[in-house]
Amino acid sequence: MKERISLVAKAHELIRARLRPGASAVDATVGNGHDTLFLLRQVAPRGRVYGFDIQRAALASAAAKINESALQACLTLINDSHARMLERIPKTDHGAIGAVMFNLGYLPGGDKAVTTRTDSTLAALSAASRLLGSGGIITIVAYPGHPGGAHETDRVGRWCKHLDCERFRVERIDAKANDEAAPRLFAVTRKRSE
């Protein structure tokens, strides 16, 4: 029997292959800040990470993890919905973002009633696809096993299928084969411009 793979680790691996120092990136779901810290380590010392979360506790947790001043200087935490990325990220970074990470669901250790919502997630994915630079990547780790998660995961999958295949490449990786409740990773790469 095949073991589950860590989809977050796989998302990090995919991003590490593309994101360079000096780039800009987005953590669309800051949570406890693990992905935020990972992105900061990829883009420092002159890059920028924009971190979005609607929960102040999530942003405080992330800020507490970032204790190196060089990393703090690269971080912008935004207490707002990820659906507002286009409005909240400076226009100078539109079309130049190297990576956008989504880790859907709820804040580990937090209130499980507060989860990502399908409508705002889809709006955020559309915004992320517009912000992404040539060769950039969006990773979405989705969890169909929690209440509302199956619907959100299904809609994310459908969103990916409707992307322009001339501009984007989509890969789906399941944590465990033949298990519809198992987490899955969608990796959306913007094809490089000629």
Rank of each mutant, 00 (worst) to 15 (best):
D174I: 03
H12N: 06
L86A: 08
C74A: 10
V170S: 06
L132T: 03
T139Y: 02
I15Q: 04
A11T: 01
A17Y: 10
V30L: 00
C165L: 12
H94A: 08
D111K: 04
A128D: 07
E68V: 07
L59W: 04
R169W: 10
G47P: 02
L86T: 09
V156S: 05
P183Q: 04
L77S: 08
R46I: 08
D93I: 05
N178A: 13
P144R: 12
S126R: 15
G22M: 09
A44M: 10
A11C: 05
G105D: 06
G98C: 05
R184K: 13
E3A: 14
V30H: 00
A182S: 10
K91T: 13
P90G: 11
F168Y: 15
T115L: 08
E87S: 11
P183I: 05
G145V: 05
T153C: 12
N32Y: 06
I5V: 15
A28N: 04
A58E: 02
L39I: 00
D93L: 12
A17L: 13
T118D: 05
V26S: 01
K2C: 09
A124C: 09
A62D: 00
T29E: 02
L107P: 06
G109P: 11
G110R: 06
N103V: 02
D154Y: 12
R130I: 08
G98R: 03
I138T: 01
